[in-house]
Nucleic acid binder design. Structure first.
Length: 633
RNA sequence: GCCCCCGUAGUUCAAUGGAUAGAAUAGAAGUUUCCUAAACUUUAGAUCCAGGUUCGAUUCCUGGCGGGGGCACCA
């Protein structure tokens, strides 16, 4: 039994004995004492004031006296206002320490027998990966590992958005301006090459849109039908009306621009290409397969560099038809309804949501259609799957709320457990990223930059000279990735974040490399300890535990709870911050507790044991964040 | 217009309703005859505003203000 529980039940008994009253089960809490107060554990007595009919400080004193007598581990106590601070005996902390060391796989929970799925990455195939994807990928990958540590069996998946008009944009541009360029001929990574054509397409698209807008301005509405023309004129009037707010004007301008876009030749050609794709036109399909293959090869290289992988990859081109089937089945069952124009809708007004289109009037799939198909396929393919976790940006919150509800209505009760691991946008100091304009922090470039930063800093330290040249590259990579991953994972996912490239390659302060460095130093100490010492780590020590060692032990004891919390809240950031506190506390301990020059051998052994345990916790924490620890750095 | 999320030191981030709101960085001042100074120590600096609930509110509720996002037969 944990000491907290033991103290808790003793406190209940105390209240009954002292005040003759039973109290509700959740009335008392035993928590770690704040740093700046003396003591290890704290009970708040304010809540007992009514029951005891006394002032909180008096209650705290009486409670403290009782607990000190009845709980052997309590060595003393002090009272500040209504707070009862308990000091726990060194012997107890040494027992805790021994227990942690003996636990196999310390921190992890036993198997839950549950299967969960985490989806992440899920890029479009027409643009290279940027820092926003990096946040997504690191989050999902880390979450998968954290759930595993919580005892679940985890399947890592991604869905690749490989069909639709946006793919045709790159294809069309390549056909028109590519001159047969290939990754081999140009030396470009496949995803970069395809991305270039997406940018080229959009450049032309923007140009043509501008021309259409100019025609609108001149009163020439071209192919617009009567309804559209009326709408366009109304928007133009609104934009010219000086009584309207700037915000209204901007949105009117955006609406007019959208209208103009539909009138460009180039988008018409892209849509024609999509129709050919849907009817399996061999030439279009060949081009599509070739360009997609280039992209996949490029993505795979990026994933390898990131150190992430997947158990299963789904392609929308293979699941969207399944989605259509499911929608039609749902229509038969009465889950959906059909409008006159044959479009199919879900009525979610009973659940406080809106009406939602699930199939177009012409029978083609929308985003929702595909997601329904994919989700159902996954439940079928994975018997026992009890949860699907989608790592997707927070702009999709409404979409997933609707998706989960629809799945439930279709009879997939497990969808109730589904979770949208939503995260805020990554912003650059220079402003928003726009992939259509090619203004992004490219993921491959970033990884290269952090590696170079790691190399230049590490190169100046003396340690690197003792390491064989051949291993340098690998060490720089680990450090660079540690910096980048930690930078993106330490922030609570729900928050939008500022990505400052200069800060992300920083190796000091609240960073991944700081933690890695602490671990590397422990390794170095332990190597030397094992050479020199006759005692095994932690052997035969029963003496005092000084303040910095005690605080370290208390922190390490929280590890299993932190893993649990991180999993329950779906936030690697909790774990990331914890790892930093551990490293920080270790460094304090390290500063005034010598291992190799200890006062007596047993004390050295104790400290070496504490080093070992700290290393274990740090290494595992970083592992759960997807970060590796170099042997030396 | 309706809906969702976020507002904490100069900046980037923390804080199950608890005590004197933590870090990092930038600023000031220190610590290497001793295990990796990518470290450690000291110092200065913040809860958007107004109400409410509570013994106690950064946290919960209401209303403002500021920032982001969503309300498509786009994905």
């Amino acid at each position: 039994m944990h000491l907290e529980e033991k103290i808790n039940s003793a406190a209940y008994a105390a209240v009954e004995t002292l005040y003759g009253e039973q109290m509700p089960a959740d009335r008392l809490t035993v928590e770690p004492t704040r740093d700046n107060f003396e003591g290890d554990l704290t009970i708040t007595a304010f809540k007992l004031a009514r029951i005891a009919q006394k002032a909180p400080p008096i209650i705290a004193g009486e409670l403290g006296e009782y607990l000190k007598e009845h709980v052997a581990e309590i060595a003393g106590y002090n009272v500040v206002k209504g707070f009862l601070n308990l000091t726990i005996s060194d012997r107890y902390w040494l027992e805790v320490f021994a227990r942690m060391r003996q636990a196999g796989n310390y921190g992890s929970a036993p198997s839950s027998g549950e299967v969960r799925m985490v989806e992440y990455a899920s890029p479009n195939t027409n643009k290279p990966l940027h820092v926003g994807h990096a946040r997504n990928i690191f989050l999902g990958h880390s979450m998968a590992r954290i759930l595993e540590a919580n005892g679940h069996e985890v399947k890592k998946v991604q869905i690749i958005n490989d069909r639709g008009v946006h793919i045709c944009m790159s294809m069309l541009a390549w056909e028109r301006w590519g001159n047969g360029e290939t990754p081999a001929s140009s030396g470009l990574k496949g995803d970069k090459l395809v991305g270039n054509y997406y940018v080229k397409f959009n450049r032309e698209y923007t140009r043509q849109t501008q021309l259409v807008l100019e025609k609108f301005e001149a009163g020439n509405y071209g192919r617009l039908n009567e309804e559209q023309t009326t709408k366009a004129k109304a928007l133009q009037a609104l934009i010219r009306n000086d009584e309207k707010s700037a915000k209204d004007k901007n949105s009117a301008a955006a609406a007019l621009k959208d209208l103009a876009k539909t009138q460009t030749d180039i988008i018409g050609e892209a849509q024609a290409m999509l129709r050919k794709w849907e009817t399996n036109d061999p030439e279009v399909r060949r081009l599509w397969e070739m360009m997609n293959r280039w992209v996949y090869e490029g993505f795979d290289a990026t994933y390898r560099a990131m150190g992430v992988d997947f158990d299963t990859i789904y392609y929308e081109s293979e699941t969207y038809l399944r989605g259509k089937e499911e929608v039609l089945k749902g229509l038969e069952k009465g889950v959906f309804y059909q409008k006159e124009d044959r479009s199919v809708w879900a009525d979610l007004t009973e659940d406080g949501l809106d009406h939602k289109l699930v199939l177009r009037g012409d029978g083609t799939a929308v985003y929702m259609t595909q997601d329904i198909g994919t989700a159902i396929l996954r439940f079928e393919e994975n018997p026992g799957l009890m949860q699907q976790i989608y790592t997707v940006g927070n702009e999709q919150e409404y979409h997933f709320k609707v998706l989960f509800l629809i799945l439930e209505k279709l009879g997939y009760k497990m969808a109730r457990n589904n979770y949208h691991l939503s995260y805020g946008m990554v912003e650059l100091p220079t402003g928003k990223m726009k992939s259509r304009e090619g203004k992004v922090a490219d993921a491959d470039d970033l990884m290269e930059e952090v590696k170079e930063a790691a190399a230049s800093i590490t190169g100046t330290s003396g340690v690197i000279d003792e390491i064989p040249e051949a291993d340098h590259e690998e060490i720089f990579r680990k450090i660079g990735m540690g910096a980048l991953k930690y930078f993106l994972l330490k922030v609570d996912p729900v928050k939008g974040m500022m990505f400052d490239p200069a800060a992300s390659v920083e190796l000091v302060g609240h960073t991944g490399p700081f933690i890695q460095y602490s671990a590397a130093r422990i390794r170095s100490i332990l190597r030397k300890y094992e050479e020199k010492s006759e005692l095994k780590p932690a052997e035969n020590y029963h003496g005092e535990v000084n303040a910095s060692a005690r605080e370290l032990i208390i922190l390490l004891e929280q590890f299993p709870a932190i893993i649990r919390e991180s999993g329950e809240k779906y936030t690697p950031s909790t774990l990331a911050n914890y790892a930093f506190y551990v490293a920080k506390q270790y460094n304090r301990f390290n500063n005034d507790n010598h291992v190799l020059h200890a006062e007596i051998p047993e004390l050295g052994a104790f400290r070496a044991g504490l080093c070992q345990l700290t290393l274990e916790v740090l290494t595992k924490s970083l592992y759960l964040l997807g970060i590796e620890v170099p042997e030396r750095m």
